[in-house]
């Protein structure tokens, strides 16, 4: 699940990057990448509240990849200003993004729902817990999600 990690300095700013691979359909491993991201951020000394928010958005996007795609990637970028998590999958894509963003709307099958997933809350959680998020999707190609959590909170969100 773990790819390459790198640390570099750009314009005097230290930037950490790591890429993770996520296996679609494997619910036994679902959540492992989010857990890994949480440990990395915690070890960096990032405040608990920000770590938990980042872990949540990572978890929800990981579950989306496991539920709906054959394979996907997640990229974690950390610099002094922000935590950025990008998820890219090779899935079916989202037909109607506006509808997908509606709380309670889900295309999950019974198997997914029986486990307590697919309640149509994942994207709402991501939106609520990130300071900035962008969702792009192409039918038959896949979905791209970008989630940013700022280190200096302009609009403090409750945990």
């Amino acid at each position: 699940m773990r790819g390459e990690s790198s640390e570099q300095v750009l314009n005097g700013q230290k930037i950490f990057e790591e890429l993770f691979i996520i296996e679609g359909g494997n619910f036994n491993k679902a959540g492992e990448v989010a857990s890994r991201i949480k440990v990395i951020l915690k070890n960096m000394g990032i405040p608990d509240e920000l770590v938990r928010r980042a872990a949540l958005v990572a978890y929800e996007s990981e579950i989306n990849i496991v539920s709906y795609a054959k394979q996907g990637y997640m990229k974690l970028t950390v610099n002094p200003d922000l935590i950025m998590i990008e998820s890219i999958d090779e899935g079916e894509g989202i037909v109607d993004i506006e509808l997908a963003m509606q709380e309670g709307y889900s295309t999950a099958n019974d198997r997914i729902r029986e486990m307590g997933f697919g309640a149509g809350m994942g994207l709402c959680n991501i939106k609520n817990y990130s300071d900035y998020f962008d969702l792009r999707s192409k039918i038959g190609k896949g979905t791209y999600l970008k989630m940013i959590i700022e280190s200096q909170q302009k609009n403090p969100k409750t945990e």
Binding site: G31, E32, D48, R52, A55, Y59, G116
Partner: peptide, 15 residues
């Protein structure tokens, strides 16, 4: 009431 292993990840991620 959920008993499958994904509950552990949720509990762990949320402390």
């Amino acid at each position: 009431r959920q008993v499958h292993q994904n509950i552990v990840a949720v509990a762990s991620l949320k402390d």
